[in-house]
Computed example of a mutant assay.
Amino acid sequence: MANNRIPYGMLALGCAGALGLAACGGGDGSSAPAQGTLQVSMTDAPACGFDHVYVTVSKIRVNGNPNVDDSGSGWVDIPVTPARRIDLLSLTNGAMATLGKSALPAGDYQQIRLVLQANAGKPYANAVVQTGGGGDEIALTTPSASQSGYKIIRPFTVAPDTLTDLVLDFDACKSIVARGNGGFNLKPVVTAIPIVVSGKVVGYAPAGSRVYAERGGEVVKGTVATSEGAFTLSPIEQSSTTGNVDVVVVPPASAARGVGIIRSVPVVAGASTTVSTATAPIAPPPSAFNTVSGTVTPLSAEASLRALQTTGGAKFEVASTFASMTTGAYGMNLPAAAPVVGTYQTTLPIPLVPDATAAGRYAIEATTSTGAVKSSSVDIGTGPATRDFAF
């Protein structure tokens, strides 16, 4: 997902004055507004360095006004009863957990709030289990989650006498920030996608690979290839303005392989696009891995970082992380070999050609919580590199 915490811009309502929940259209005002049904589900992208990421959802709230605060008017609540504790890492490769379903006035909606249950002793409502950490749960600090909820701006329409499916896509990898004292904060990167306008991309890659669907170098969906190498990128919103997606495969360091990129993969609502098969997976050639690390100051920057690789005049995100909230330190382990690149075609396998000019070369981009951005080039082709950022 992109570094912007609210990836979608605020759009105007479809009907003038429809800042509440009344349905669009005419009427004499004497009859009750038409009703529709909203069903909300949750899915996830991969999480970095965790075996489990638990969140407990108590309520979903929706409103027709993108600017109203949590105590304002016009909210419709979709209770999750009982509150549901979900392991986000079980929701990859297109798996979804239904949170709730409720009838509500038909019309245009703009804002969603994801409300979590507060921690109150073990087992924690919201927690993480680190890879290699012995299985112990660490409480996840969730500022404002149980009061105002996490805000998502995303226009969607509930039609009369119709079930509308809305998926909250929770990117755990980009949402968990180390505090440096062994604790973790949740700073959610969540998007909302109506199922009716989404499609999927499927294929095979080395087991454990991180697989991203990107537009313009921004991740719109991510997952992890299964132990058999299968991956499903879903849901991906079909877009008439931003077009196809680029599929980026980043095998784990243990696989010692480079990056594979397939350009211009079509996304069709309600359909599936295949980019590789079990007998001919996307399998980049061998690669060493080297680290890029550094610090971001001041700590108040609360920076996120991305490693971008440029090939064919386009940038692709290969890795991302957060700077520690208590030390400002960060680190990413990146492939040193040339990426292999191909363009989507219906005939499989898609030929992949190495770009030697991009081998080991990355732009490290740091973005503060207020949106300030700095970028620095590195070459980790022959060894580790250090890049510090001061804002």
Score class of each variant (00 low, 15 high):
132 G>M: 08
76 V>S: 05
93 N>D: 11
177 V>K: 09
158 V>D: 01
192 A>Q: 03
115 V>P: 02
132 G>Q: 04
82 P>G: 05
171 D>E: 15
145 A>T: 08
129 V>L: 09
112 I>M: 01
97 A>L: 06
180 G>S: 03
189 V>I: 11
84 R>G: 01
98 T>F: 05
139 A>F: 05
113 R>T: 11
144 S>C: 09
124 Y>I: 09
98 T>L: 05
79 P>C: 04
129 V>R: 12
102 S>T: 14
148 S>D: 15
139 A>E: 10
104 L>Y: 05
177 V>Q: 06
122 K>N: 13
119 N>D: 04
189 V>P: 00
196 V>E: 10
96 M>I: 15
79 P>F: 06
139 A>I: 03
195 I>F: 04
195 I>L: 14
195 I>D: 06
195 I>R: 14
105 P>D: 13
191 T>K: 07
90 S>C: 10
117 Q>E: 02
193 I>N: 05
84 R>Y: 07
125 A>L: 07
121 G>C: 02
186 L>K: 05
94 G>D: 07
131 T>I: 09
173 C>E: 03
125 A>G: 06
192 A>Y: 01
77 D>S: 15
134 G>R: 12
158 V>K: 02
184 F>E: 01
177 V>G: 00
180 G>P: 00
191 T>H: 02
191 T>S: 14
107 G>I: 12
106 A>E: 02
193 I>F: 00
76 V>I: 15
122 K>M: 13
79 P>M: 11
196 V>A: 15
162 T>D: 08
198 S>C: 05
182 G>R: 09
134 G>K: 09
150 Y>I: 11
131 T>Q: 13
188 P>M: 12
83 A>T: 12
149 G>K: 08
146 S>G: 04
143 P>H: 13
138 I>K: 02
179 R>E: 12
142 T>I: 15
169 D>L: 15
190 V>A: 02
136 D>V: 14
143 P>S: 03
81 T>S: 15
169 D>I: 14
